[in-house]
Design a protein around this nucleic acid. Sequence first.
DNA 1: ACCTTTAACGCAACTATGTTGCATAAATTT
DNA 2: AAATTTATGCAACATAGTTGCGTTAAAGGT
Lengths: 136, 136
Amino acid sequence: MDNQNIQDILKAHGIRKTLFRTELLDIFIKSRYGLSFSDIKSKVTQTQDKVTIYRGLDVFLEKGLIHKVPSNDRVAKYALHSLEEVHNRAHVHFICTECDNTFCLNEIEIPEIKDMPGYKIQKSKLTLEGNCPDCI
Amino acid sequence: MDNQNIQDILKAHGIRKTLFRTELLDIFIKSRYGLSFSDIKSKVTQTQDKVTIYRGLDVFLEKGLIHKVPSNDRVAKYALHSLEEVHNRAHVHFICTECDNTFCLNEIEIPEIKDMPGYKIQKSKLTLEGNCPDCI
DNA sequence: ACCTTTAACGCAACTATGTTGCATAAATTT
DNA sequence: AAATTTATGCAACATAGTTGCGTTAAAGGT
């Protein structure tokens, strides 16, 4: 993915193409797994200000470019919203207990959950734990 | 559940029955949903020291008396380990988007997940989101 | 190309969450 | 009752995340 594509994606999401946000999106595109604030802070070169990073993440979230992924550390992690996102299907994540990375498994199909009496279910998220391809 | 029962449970888990830990367990027993550190801090009367609370939670976790539950706020939440816990079944939690409380749904049955090629699955957790009985 | 509008950045200060080390106190074990 | 072990309280620290505000830079219109 070249720089032009990245800037088109930003534009399509109503996000201004600053050096930092271009770099931030590039970092997400290149990563196979969810990134925490400190992951991002250590990769980014265009700023060292944490507020800028947090606000970049907030905007990317708001505009639907990224989403939160579960993690076993107590820190928030974020990953690109897959473009082939399918509706009305549980979102599946995989946490590797070895490397602690969270992967999005959009390929997997999970069965619909029957309604629980008394509860109104709007969304379901399946989180799998074990070992990822790199750690088996 | 009276005070004697609570102290028996502590003893059965190898936890000393101090005033604080007796109260902590009582708080968990009385709560229908997962509690965060600050929930607990505001309920507890036997201490106001956060280290004591955190260490109480650590010990309860270690001894298997409580477990972490997912939450949409970025804070850790804990709930009692249900006694009727069934093995080899996904743990199901329900997060209410209205009151932000996390409930354990041990009754629900979820289908086995087929292995993903390349990944070794050891555990699966299903998190449902929507509205709880109180918020419908 | 210039001006205006609006969003993004950088800095300082602050809050919440969580941890470590150590001395003291209380609960179990003998 | 003494010895042992675990729990508590305090201080200090570390990390995560937020708010306000003045400045800078991007986008759109003329």
